[in-house]
């Protein structure tokens, strides 16, 4: 069984292959992760939960798989993986958008105030839009010096996460 995995903190795909050489000892597995081979004991204690032992080191895990998306809790850390055939572009959308030309809603909420108009020249960190989510106000600011091309929301509007609120054109 071979799986190619990516995670937001390690975007290069890593191939993981599980082989069970001895049918009489099904928990003994040869695992190839990238170009490294490991002898591993995998004891499953429940559906999608169990222990992984590598060189007597015990790692407790719980996983959840939903299509291409795999969630892993192991030794107190949580990780998100995607099987590589279909890497969704959604994860980190808010942060890449902030670096790009769109101002997007970091969470669902209500637009309280729009502080700029199309055509305005703005400077980096200048507040553009104030929105409210879960009763907290949040100011969305310009990522860089730019000109406002378009405002795609209006005050009082309820917006979804990642909705485009404004389009900027960066100054050279």
């Amino acid at each position: 069984m071979k799986t190619k995995l990516t995670s937001p903190s390690a975007p290069d795909p890593v191939a993981v292959e599980l082989q069970t050489p001895n049918p009489n000892a099904p928990t003994q597995t040869i695992v190839t992760v990238g170009d490294q081979q490991h002898e591993v004991d995998i004891e499953s204690t429940a559906a999608n939960a169990g222990l992984i032992r590598i060189n007597h080191q015990v790692h407790r895990y719980v996983t959840h798989r939903d299509g291409d998306r795999i969630l892993v809790w192991i030794d107190g850390q949580s990780f998100k993986f995607n099987t590589v055939n279909n890497v969704p572009r959604r994860s980190g959308a808010a942060s890449t958008a902030a670096a790009g030309n769109d101002i997007t809603a970091p969470m669902p909420g209500t637009i309280l105030k729009i502080l700029v108009d199309p055509g305005d020249c703005v400077t980096a960190h200048q507040p553009l839009i104030i929105m409210e989510s879960m009763k907290m106000e949040m100011t969305l600011s310009a990522p860089a010096d730019a000109t406002i091309r378009q405002i795609s929301c209006h005050e009082g509007e309820l917006v979804e996460r990642d909705a485009t609120l404004a389009t900027l054109e960066r100054s050279e």
Partner: peptide
Amino acid sequence: PPVEAYIAAATSKQS
């Protein structure tokens, strides 16, 4: 992710 996280992910079955 450490190596064991990749292994756990690879064992994961559709939930």
